[in-house]
Design a protein around this nucleic acid. Structure first.
Length: 794
DNA sequence: ATAGGGTTAG
């Protein structure tokens, strides 16, 4: 059609309007744009009706920006009166987004005096629902009520959907219950809302009620409930739904089938997931994303990456932000930083939107791969942050030994106005556990209680761990006793708590209680139990449980169990038995197994065996520095300085640096750290003076420094001073100076406590009449009135 | 319908 030519021939305005009209009726975007061009040039041809028609055409063609531009040029009275056009504009934005434009248009409509109709509300409410804009939705609900539109079935359904998506399920239910006629769509709104918020029980109850009301779930219902089933790990329920889908022929629907495979993946049933995937006729990007995610959830990470490549190469499907998120999670699970970095580069190069979720995924990858510098840099770059952002960085720090940083960031989070949630606290408490920062931990406990988190099993589990690692095993037990529901982690954490305090009998009692309560011990339970036996010298019990674990509980021992057993036997002085135990192992012992024996050789001063064990460790590649240190200590103790020096030279040549011994003490919520011979603390002078004073009293009571454990060949007096300024002594002394005389002192050390400090602290408890507790890398030492509860071997 | 944060383990 050569309309452009005809338009130039000086027709009268009314005939031109007719031509415009005809062009718009073709519903062709190209024609619309031609009319638009001419209207811009010949403003005299503008008529409100034409402009309205052009707006409609643009809406139909999904050109919302253009539609909106033309809409605004319609003169006021005509625009005001064309309610239908307002509704169309709002509906278009509510469908396609940006959703906030729909809400803005609604407000503009009301403010310019246009009365919304029953068609307006479902659309604007849908926009509120997509944005989870609770306040706006409530206001709009109020408007509809005042207009007497409350019984309109479409509005009610939209309201149910809106409240349910915002998580206000009580309000959703209120609207729902008032409805005269609830159809499948209204039920689906209720059901998908509770499913979206992970309320598995409620979702299933609603399904039953729906069927009792005589309605059958349709494919949308099924698609809505499958994520909740997956998250609730309800495999048998999921299979029932699958069967229902087959009966109703929903299973060939790509949305339902994708939901099914995702559900199987989340339930850990990879075989079923991939079977659904394989027989699917139509697969889209979401299907591939779900399958890749299923592989990752089931720990088949390299298979997931392989599938991703298959998708790109053989199936013509491009990456999407969601799939890239999954790929990042795969590298995270492999703790493969370079893989993660490559994906990060790809995200930048491909120009993917840097959404909050993508940022959080990247942050979590860097955090789990242990590069705190990258985490902090990314964190600072992120413009928008939410609680997940903070949770990722806090737990990332806590899991990578940066507990002090975790505390600082937790404080920053509170200043930023983002409220810590349940996951924040569960991720933060281990940082307190690690530092034995009881005051921070107790504050976190109070905050959790006030926020209503302490009814949750996960938070109580973290609290049990925190209190027992902060030396308060009694409070840990109180938390344990008051829990409404305990899971396997609760019992394991409590048993381990008793173990580190040398309370083996209590650990065994709890192990029995656990079985009476109907819980089946798992592999971790036995690690905790054997550890407890080992640290309380309960050799016979430990041996018995090791056998029972295999025979009665069908748990195949892992390396960790063997390590516990070698530790148990070795600690008790049964060095030969420990060695033959290792020789009988059905699998090859790793370095940690031999290290456990080497530590035992040190306790029982058996240099010959230590040398032999040390050679084995050398052959395996001595992964850690601790083994060199032990052997060198033993040679030193025997006065064999040359041998000790050779070990240290070998250690240096192989590139192993001794990690410095570090001790810390929490005073009024501030953690003070010390290394050996440290003079950097502001109160250093006082601390050293106090220590020297105490040394005089200690000597009077019979203390002799264990100078054989100084590893350089130096004069006695010098040895004494090297020992005197060990980090644990400095931290204890600072505690004595800073805390009231009735207060017990808790010091934490990153390595095992040294023999001399162990002896010295006993004397210090007598001199200062204080209780002193040291948590070293291995366990708790409770010093009281000149004795330690560890029984002097550790 | 697919992506982000959390508890026990020498």
């Amino acid at each position: 059609m050569s309309c452009a030519v005809r338009l130039r021939t000086g027709n009268s305005p009314s005939s031109i309007t007719n031509i415009y009209d005809k062009l718009l009726e073709t519903k062709s975007l190209r024609h619309g744009k031609i009319v638009h061009q001419h209207l811009l040039k010949n403003t005299s041809h503008n008529s409100p009706i034409l402009l309205a028609k052009l707006t409609r055409l643009y809406i139909t063609c999904n050109e919302l920006d253009l539609a909106s531009r033309v809409f605004r040029t319609i003169p006021y009275p005509q625009r005001k009166n064309n309610v239908v056009l307002w509704n169309h504009m709002i509906r278009a934005y509510a469908w396609k987004g940006p959703f906030d434009r729909a809400i803005d248009l609604y407000y503009e409509m009301v403010e310019s005096g246009v009365t919304p109709t029953n068609f307006t509300y479902p659309f604007v409410l849908k926009a509120c629902s997509s944005l989870q804009a609770l306040q706006d939705g409530k206001r709009i609900h109020d408007h509809a009520r005042r207009l007497g539109l409350e019984s309109d079935v479409y509005i009610c359904t939209a309201l149910v959907d809106f409240y349910a998506k915002c998580g206000c399920l009580v309000d959703a239910r209120k609207v729902f219950d008032k409805m005269y006629d609830t159809d499948v769509v209204a039920w689906n709104a209720m059901i998908s809302g509770s499913s979206l918020h992970g309320l598995y029980g409620d979702t299933m109850r609603l399904i039953v009620q729906m069927q009792e009301a005589g309605l059958s779930p349709n494919s949308s219902t099924v698609a809505a409930i499958l994520p909740a089933i997956g998250e609730g790990n309800q495999l048998s329920q999921g299979k029932t739904v699958h069967a229902y889908c087959v009966r109703r022929s929903f299973h060939s629907d790509v949305v339902v089938a994708t939901g099914l495979l995702d559900m199987y993946g989340k339930c850990g049933c990879l075989v079923y997931a991939s079977r659904v995937f394989d027989i699917m006729g139509v697969k889209n990007e979401v299907t591939w994303g779900a399958m890749i995610g299923a592989y990752i959830s089931c720990d088949f990470v390299s298979e997931a990456l392989e599938l991703y490549n298959q998708m790109l190469i053989g199936n013509g499907i491009c990456s999407s932000p969601v799939i890239i998120g999954s790929v990042l999670r795969a590298w995270t699970k492999l703790t493969d930083l370079s893989g993660g970095r490559r994906v990060h580069g790809y995200i930048i190069k491909a120009g993917f939107d840097y959404s909050l979720m993508m940022g959080n995924t990247l942050l979590s990858m860097y955090a789990k791969c242990g590069t705190i510098e990258d985490v902090v840099r990314l964190f600072d770059e992120m413009g928008v942050k939410d609680s997940v952002t903070y949770n990722a960085i806090i737990s990332g720090c806590a899991q990578n030994g940066k507990a002090k940083e975790a505390i600082v960031i937790f404080q920053e989070m509170q200043l930023s106005g983002i409220k810590p949630d349940l996951a924040t606290m569960v991720g933060f408490l281990p940082a307190c556990s690690h530092l034995a920062a009881l005051q921070h931990g107790a504050c976190a406990h109070c905050f959790s209680a006030v926020s209503g988190f302490t009814t949750e099993t996960s938070i109580c589990n973290a609290l049990i761990d925190m209190y027992s690692k902060c030396g308060k095993v009694d409070i840990a037990r109180l938390v344990f006793d008051r829990m409404q529901k305990r899971d396997i982690v609760s019992w394991n954490a409590m048993i381990f708590g008793y173990g580190i305090h040398g309370l083996g009998k209590e650990a065994i009692l709890l192990f029995h209680d656990m079985q009476i309560a109907g819980l089946r011990p798992d592999d971790v339970t036995f690690i905790c139990l054997l550890y407890a036996c080992s640290h309380s010298g309960l050799v016979a019990e430990g041996k018995k449980w090791f056998v029972d674990m295999n025979q009665d509980f069908c748990i195949v021992p892992r390396m960790e169990h063997y390590i516990c057993m070698v530790d148990l036997l070795g600690r008790a002085g049964l060095l030969n038995e420990a060695r033959s135990f290792i020789e009988r192992m059905p699998c090859d012992p790793d370095v940690c197994v031999w290290s456990a024996l080497l530590s035992a050789c040190k306790i029982h001063k058996n240099i010959e065996l230590a040398e032999e064990v040390s050679n084995k460790i050398q052959c395996l590649g001595p992964e850690s520095t601790g083994n060199f240190v032990i052997l060198s200590h033993m040679y030193s103790a025997a006065g064999r300085w040359d041998a000790a020096a050779n070990v240290r030279i070998a250690q240096r040549d192989l590139g192993f640096k001794k990690s410095p011994g570090c001790s810390w003490v929490e005073i009024n919520g501030v953690v003070h750290a010390f290394v050996g011979g440290d003079q950097s603390h502001p109160h250093s002078a006082e601390i050293y003076r106090k220590l020297e004073d105490m040394l005089i009293d200690m000597k009077r009571l019979g203390y002799r420094s264990e100078s054989s454990f100084v590893f350089q060949d130096v004069e006695e007096e010098e040895k004494e001073s090297i020992l005197l300024y060990h980090s644990e002594k400095l931290a204890v002394t600072f505690g004595i100076l800073s805390l009231g005389s009735d207060k017990p002192i808790l010091v934490t050390k990153n390595l095992r406590i040294c023999v001399d400090c162990h002896t010295a602290l006993k004397y210090i408890t007598i001199i200062t009449k204080r209780k002193i507790t040291v948590r070293d890398a291995s366990r708790f030492h409770h010093f009281r009135d000149g004795i330690c509860n560890c029984g002097d071997f550790w």
